[in-house]
Design a protein around this nucleic acid. Structure first.
Lengths: 319, 319
DNA sequence: TTGTACGCGTTATCAC
DNA sequence: GTGATAACGCGTACAA
C-alpha cells in the first residue's frame, strides 16, 4: 500500500514530480519519468481514490434514486445509465426508496455531504419545490415531467403518450376503454387520467383502475374486472408488467384476448413480445443515457436540459 | 459549506470538541456542547463524507458486480442487498459487467483503490484463483458455488437444485426431459448438465439447449424445439424468464402446455405466477441479504461464511 | 474536560 | 524542469 510519498522517496524525486507523472502532466524529464514509473511498478503503487476525491472535490459518482431496483420498469433506464457512466468513468450509487419520502431525502443528502457529484431521480414523491432545495449542492436530473428550470429533465410526456395510445385504441375500433394506473396521485397518473378524460368519449371514473404497480397487481385486477357489471372492451395499462400479469391470469380465467378484452401495454419490455403484447414503446434506455449526460455536462457548466421524448406503437396480437 | 473549523471558531471551542459533539463522545461539558450545536445549526453544518472517509479509511460502500442490471434474475438478489445495506447505512455501487472479464477486473479494482470496502459478486467469468488476488484489499463474497475458503459464499447448490427439479419432473411422469441452460461453460451450467446426465435415464446431448439467457432467447427456442425430429416431453429451464419467453411463444404457436410440452422454470419470479408457471423457487432475496451480512461482518474480523441454500418446488399449471 | 498538532494521500500553487 | 509546502476536512494521540 505504497503511497505517492513512498514512490517519491524510492525514485528520489519530489511528490510533485510523481503526481505529474501520474497525471501525465508536462515538465518532467524523461529520465525522472522513467525512474518514477519503475518505482511505481516495483512498489505496486495504487492511487488512493479517497484522497484524490478529497483533494479535487469530485467523487466521480452519481446517486440514482428509484423506488425499486427489482422492478423491471426501471431496468432499461438503469441500463442506459450504466452504459453512459462506464464511458465517463463514473460510478452509480443506487438508492432504493420504495416511494418513501425519508428515503428520497436520505438519497439527496448524499449530495449535501459531498458523497456524490450529482443525483439522477427516476421517480419521486418529493415535490419539485423541495427537490430544488438540494439543487445548490449539485446537479439534479429527473425522468419525470414538470421539473422547474433549475432541474434537468428527460422524460416522456405522459399526456401525449397516453393520448397517442388511446388513439391507437380508438382507431382499432375500441370505444369503451379503461385505463390502469400505478400510484393514483403520482404526477404521471394525473396527466394520464386527464388525457383519458379529454380523449375518450366513453371515459368514466370507474374504468380508471388505480394502484396497479406490479405483475401481481395485474393478476389481481382480473377478478376486479370480472366483477364489473359493465366492462370496458379494452384496457390501456401504464406498464407492461401489469399488463402481462393481467394477460396471463385473464387467459387462465378463460377470457379471450383480444376478443373479450383487448390489452395495450406501455414500456416495450422484451418479455412482452413473447406473449404478443401490443404496447407503446417508451425509449427508456435513451432516457437513461440522456439523463446521465445531462447531469454530467451540468457539472462543466452546461445549461439545464429539458427534453421530451415520444413513444411509438409496437404492434402485437392483444389488440 | 461550513467545516468543522468554522464551527469551532464560531462556538469558540477547539475542533476536537466539535468532533466530540458530532460523534457523541464523552467529556464535553453541557455548556460547550450546547454552543457547538447552536453553531452547527446557525452555520448549517454538513459533515463532509469524503474527508471522513480519508480519515477513517472506511468508505461505507460495497461494489456489487453483476452481468446485467436490467436482467430480472438479479432483481431479487439486489433487493435483498439493498435492504440489508440500508440497515447498516451502507451504499451500493452497482457495476455491470456484461460478462466481460475486463469489466469484472475494473469492478474489483475499486477495492484496490480504496473506493469501496468490499465486493459482492453475483456472477462472474473470472476464475476464483484470480479473484483471490483481490482478496488482500477487502472482503469478497460471491453468490456462486465453489469459492475457495478465503471468499465468502452464499449460494444455491445448483447440482442438488437441478437434481430436485428433475425428480419433480420424473415423479410427475415425465421421462423424456430436456434442459435449457444459459452460458454453456458457466460453472452452474456445468453442474446442472452433470445432474441431468446423472439423474435422467433418457438424458441425451441434443436435449441440452445452451445459450439461453433472456426471454427473447426463450422465444427463439420454440422454433429450434419444433424442428427436432424427436422431442422431449418436458423442458427444465434454468431461468423463469427464458421459460416464460418459451411459454408465450409456444402457446402462440399452437403448442399445448403441458400436453405437448411441459415447462418447469427456475427462480420463482412473481410474474411467473400470472402465467401459472411451475417453477423451482430460489431464495435469491435471502441470498442477497446474507451476502451483505457476510461481507459486512468480515470487515469486523468475522470468519468467511460458506452457506448453501435449497430450492423448493412451486406448483403451477405448466406441468 | 479541553486543546494543539499531526496524519490520512492527493493535487495545486508558487518559488526556484 | 523541479521541489517545498499549503490546502482539502476530518479523527485522534497526546499534552495540559
Amino acid at each position: 500500500m505504497a503511497n505517492i510519498r513512498d514512490i517519491a522517496k524510492h525514485a528520489d524525486v519530489s511528490v510533485t514530480t510523481v503526481s505529474r507523472v501520474i497525471n501525465a502532466h508536462p515538465y518532467v524529464s524523461d529520465e525522472k519519468r522513467e525512474r518514477v514509473q519503475r518505482a511505481m511498478k516495483e512498489l505496486g503503487y495504487l492511487r488512493n481514490q479517497q484522497a484524490l476525491t478529497l483533494s479535487t472535490g469530485r467523487t466521480q459518482r452519481f446517486v440514482v434514486v428509484l423506488p425499486y431496483m427489482d422492478h423491471p420498469y426501471y431496468g432499461l433506464f438503469v441500463n442506459g445509465l450504466a452504459k453512459a457512466a462506464l464511458g465517463k468513468d463514473y460510478r452509480l450509487v443506487m438508492w432504493q426508496t420504495e416511494y418513501r419520502l425519508d428515503q428520497e431525502r436520505q438519497a439527496l443528502d448524499l449530495l449535501k455531504h459531498r458523497e456524490v457529484d450529482g443525483a439522477i431521480v427516476l421517480s419521486h414523491t418529493m415535490t419539485f419545490e423541495e427537490m430544488e432545495t438540494y439543487r445548490a449542492y449539485g446537479p439534479i436530473s429527473v425522468a419525470t415531467v414538470g421539473a422547474p428550470e433549475t432541474i434537468s429533465s428527460v422524460h416522456v410526456d405522459h399526456y401525449t403518450a397516453f393520448q397517442t395510445g388511446l388513439r391507437v385504441l380508438t382507431e382499432a375500433g375500441y370505444e369503451d376503454v379503461g385505463i390502469v394506473l400505478s400510484r393514483p396521485d403520482s404526477p404521471s397518473s394525473i396527466v394520464r387520467q386527464q388525457a383519458y378524460f379529454d380523449e375518450v368519449a366513453s371515459a368514466r371514473e370507474r374504468w380508471v383502475y388505480s394502484g396497479y404497480l406490479t405483475s401481481e397487481d395485474g393478476k389481481r385486477l382480473v377478478s376486479a374486472f370480472l366483477s364489473e357489471q359493465e366492462r370496458p372492451r379494452a384496457l390501456f395499462f401504464s406498464s407492461d408488467y401489469v399488463a402481462l400479469g393481467f394477460l396471463g391470469e385473464a387467459t387462465r380465467s378463460g377470457l379471450q384476448v383480444p376478443h373479450d378484452i383487448a390489452v395495450l401495454g406501455f414500456d416495450g419490455h422484451p418479455i412482452g413480445q413473447a406473449f404478443g403484447l401490443s404496447t407503446m414503446r417508451s425509449p427508456n434506455e435513451d432516457i437513461g443515457r440522456a439523463l446521465f449526460e445531462a447531469t454530467f455536462q451540468e457539472m462543466t457548466g452546461a445549461p439545464v436540459v429539458q427534453e421530451s421524448l415520444t413513444v411509438t406503437y409496437l404492434s402485437g396480437t392483444t389488440l
